[in-house]
């Protein structure tokens, strides 16, 4: 069993472009954290009226207590899979929050302090399916977030994905996890949890 964390409104934003699988990523993460880990989770989403393209984002608020306001106020973690999203949402990040970017798409980060992995090129070159970008990212997240257990994520994948694409996604998940562990071995120890919420930089 992973260590039980006490979370007080831990807020994550997953952002990018329509078609990258952002909403699916948010849904799977929420499912794992709410059902398997027993946290209170609200997952909200924002997307444009377009079928493809346009900004897309999924927001998660994770807490050990009941969540009243379902949207994030100050982000603990921002995941940006496009330069535009990175520029747009960086200002919503807490001073103690962390930025995770897809280094194959985000070339200019607003800060030198960030975690970066080339999710899209990893998915395309190592997994062979560009559509698995979100799952590579999910694998990396299960390393970065100490309260999200890799094995639970792997189990949950089987529940949410159709059998015929399960193998390739498990491969993508494991790749993301291992890459993150190799590049940032002590990342999950950098968090400071349950910091009191302030309302200043609310959007």
């Amino acid at each position: 069993m992973p260590k039980q964390h006490e979370l007080n409104r831990f807020e994550i934003r997953l952002s990018g472009t329509g078609g990258q699988g952002i909403l699916t990523l948010g849904k799977i993460m929420g499912q794992v954290l709410a059902i398997d880990h027993g946290f209170h989770v609200t997952q909200t989403q924002s997307y444009g009226p377009e079928a493809r393209g346009g900004a897309s984002r999924a927001d998660l608020v994770i807490s050990s207590h009941r969540i009243s306001y379902p949207k994030p106020v100050n982000l603990d973690m921002l995941v940006a899979l496009s330069q535009e999203a990175c520029n747009l949402y960086f200002r919503n990040l807490k001073p103690s929050g962390f930025l995770l970017v897809d280094t194959s798409l985000v070339t200019q980060t607003p800060s030198n302090i960030f975690w970066g992995l080339p999710f899209t090129s990893l998915a395309r070159d190592k997994v062979g399916v560009a559509q698995a970008t979100n799952i590579v990212c999910l694998g990396a997240m299960s390393h970065f977030l100490p309260f999200m257990n890799f094995n639970n994520v792997k189990k949950a994948l089987a529940g949410v994905l159709p059998a015929k694409i399960l193998d390739v996604n498990v491969k993508a998940l494991t790749l993301g996890y291992n890459q993150a562990r190799k590049l940032y071995p002590d990342a999950s120890e950098k968090w400071t949890f349950s910091s009191p919420m302030t309302m200043e930089s609310e959007q």
């Binding site: 948010g26 849904k27 709410a34 209170h40 989770v41 609200t42 997952q43 909200t44 379902p70």
Partner: peptide, 9 residues
């Protein structure tokens, strides 16, 4: 839209 498109347990 928010209530309808929020996921929760």
């Amino acid at each position: 839209e928010i209530t309808a498109h929020t996921r929760e347990k």
